[in-house]
């Protein structure tokens, strides 16, 4: 049931995604603040399919040259492409403190045993500014293969970006900066180079009292 209702292709299903800040309170406890979060969902066949977005509406927000979003989509498979609109929670009190940990964790599952590569490109005005590439091996758990990218440290560029964003006095100013800030994550099978998931992330600042929010869309080309 998750196909078409969550971030899942026929080969790989994203279970969870979060970018967070851990602030130690005392030697034994810490506060965890989630900037963005996609939690575990258990869709059923009665749930509606994700809404679709025409991928051409967002091409220019992501790298357009060789290996860009257009080329990736043309290569397919089309059911591996998603757009996530995040409303990020920037309500945390950020101080420059080396004991703070900024991280990203994500989890995936598959019925296939494989080695995955996750490329995460941060883009400004559609141009890549930094890229992180991670390789994960599968663990067989409860009848399926699980991949965990656990507490991957956020890069210096992103930490500075969050701090600068936080310093802007008004939310509309933050949203104006975020209009030209995007992230493209591409998960591939390391050995076959097949695209397993391609997720385009776009952002606004949350105005909710309930923290980070998101909408997920299927990317299509009619």
């Amino acid at each position: 049931p998750w196909q078409g209702r969550s971030i899942a292709s026929s080969k790989l299903h994203m279970l969870e995604f979060s970018a967070f800040l851990e602030q130690p309170q005392d030697p034994e406890t810490f506060n965890k603040h989630l900037f963005v979060h996609i939690g575990q969902s258990n869709p059923t066949f009665s749930d509606p399919y994700l809404e679709a977005v025409d991928i051409r509406q967002i091409y220019d927000k992501f790298p357009e040259k060789k290996g860009g979003l257009k080329e990736l989509f043309e290569k397919g498979p089309p059911n591996a492409f998603f757009l996530v609109k995040f409303w990020a929670d920037l309500s945390a009190n950020l101080q420059d403190d080396s004991s703070f940990f900024y991280g990203v964790s994500s989890q995936y599952e598959s019925s296939e045993n494989m080695i995955i590569t996750s490329s995460t490109k941060v883009c400004s005005f559609g141009k890549q500014v930094v890229e992180k590439v991670e390789t994960e091996y599968a663990r067989f758990e409860n009848g399926r293969y699980v991949f965990r990218i656990h507490r991957s440290p956020l890069c210096e560029y992103m930490i500075n970006f969050i701090h600068k964003l936080k310093h802007l006095p008004e939310k509309y100013m933050m949203n104006s900066v975020l209009e030209n800030f995007t992230i493209l994550q591409v998960v591939t099978n390391r050995d076959t180079l097949e695209t397993l998931l391609c997720i385009a992330y776009v952002f606004e600042v949350s105005t909710s009292e309930h923290g980070a929010q998101h909408h997920i869309y299927r990317l299509v080309k009619d």
Binding site: I58, N180, S208, H210
Partner: peptide
């Protein structure tokens, strides 16, 4: 070289794209 981009508000996107969910 920054290209002049069409603002997101002027693109064909679902209405939900601009509606922050209010989930607890």
């Amino acid at each position: 070289s920054k290209q002049e981009q069409v603002p997101m508000r002027k693109r064909q996107l679902p209405a939900s794209f601009w509606e922050e969910p209010r989930l607890a």
